[in-house]
Design a protein around this nucleic acid. Structure first.
Lengths: 200, 200
DNA sequence: GTCTATAGTAGGATAGAC
DNA sequence: GTCTATCCTACTATAGAC
């Protein structure tokens, strides 16, 4: 593995663990087993290395999400598969957490990889939901953009709650809430709607 | 205003703007127009000052939320009032953003004020929703805890999306999504459910 | 390409005068 | 209580050898 590769990997890990402001070049070098020279040869500095790390992160995240969203089955099942993707609630979202960092938001180059990922994610979720509406699986009144935004926000917020309480269950409670309301979007939701005595 | 008061205020502002790791004692002193001595006389250091600032933040936030949740009217309207509270999406949540900071989560003393606030908030929302179920306004199947968690997460996630895109509209889109699904929780949601041709 | 040495600045806390 | 002066460490980047 090239030093450049090792540096990008180490940077990605540390950005996840400590955020951008909380990560120093020295930490990255130590984890990557590299010297100062390697880093400043391949990158102009901390910011450029972080951009490379974030870009890689985005690619990995997209791959994982795409796998869940393109599976066989109804739209709602695919969205549920996305919600059930393996996650580490206590660690937080690799991308989302960086967006809370002042220095990341202040630098357009740093913000871009994160913004691109969330633009893609929300659009992708919206497309799946719109597909569900088109096939009649979901009620015609369902607003794909608003629901996609709600889902994305719930996941991000779930991470926040899990971290603040240091309890993964808080993440799953929020996800459960999302699943419960998603179940109400189906065209035949009346029957199994909680509280409505369905046929049993 | 005492120096202690000025320091707490300045710290609260800077924690909101830059996060815990991104805020230095020097910045706080400059904004508070105080010297090193004042800070180290009243507080043991950066961490203790941050705890004081966060505790104050929590009190302020609770006051604002309580006002929305105790207003007259049905449970759903009160929750909607909470969702419509004035917010600065691009600035992020004063509490939630700090929970993304590695050093805050790592220190129990720092995490406590944030955890306490979210424990209170979720319980408060859950109580309002449970009240709505009790009065028959909301369907019996509504899960107050899960919905409270969903609402809290949506707000926090909305902040993340707004910041990453540097666009307040992203926050409001997520909030709109939450409002749309909340409207489905009422006992008579069938009539005005989008997609169902109500009486018009 | 990769290394170590060096340097200037800022972070965080202490000492001691007033 | 509040101030300034001082200290040590870490952060970020550069220089120059190999």
């Amino acid at each position: 593995m090239s030093k450049k590769e090792a540096l990008t990997r180490a940077a990605a890990e540390l950005l996840w663990e400590r955020g951008y402001t909380g990560t120093s070049p020295a930490m990255i070098l130590e984890r990557a087993q590299a010297g100062q020279g390697s880093m400043y040869h391949h990158f102009s500095g901390k910011a450029e290395l972080a951009v490379a790390a974030m870009t890689r992160m985005g690619d990995e995240l997209r791959t994982g999400v795409e796998k869940a969203l393109t599976a066989e089955g109804p739209a709602l099942a695919r969205v549920a598969a996305y919600l059930d993707l393996e996650r580490a609630p206590l660690a937080g979202c690799r991308m989302g957490r960086l967006a809370q960092d002042h220095d990341v938001v202040a630098d357009p180059e740093l913000r871009a990889p994160a913004a691109d990922f969330f633009t893609w994610l929300t659009a992708r979720l919206s497309a799946v939901l719109a597909d569900g509406v088109r096939t009649g699986e979901l009620r015609p009144g369902v607003d794909p953009d608003a629901m996609a935004s709600l889902i994305t926000a719930t996941v991000q917020g779930g991470y926040v709650l899990a971290r603040v309480h240091q309890d993964p269950a808080e993440f799953h409670r929020a996800i459960d809430g999302a699943k419960q309301v998603l179940a109400q979007l189906t065209a035949d939701a009346d029957e199994d709607r909680p509280g409505h005595p369905g046929h049993r």
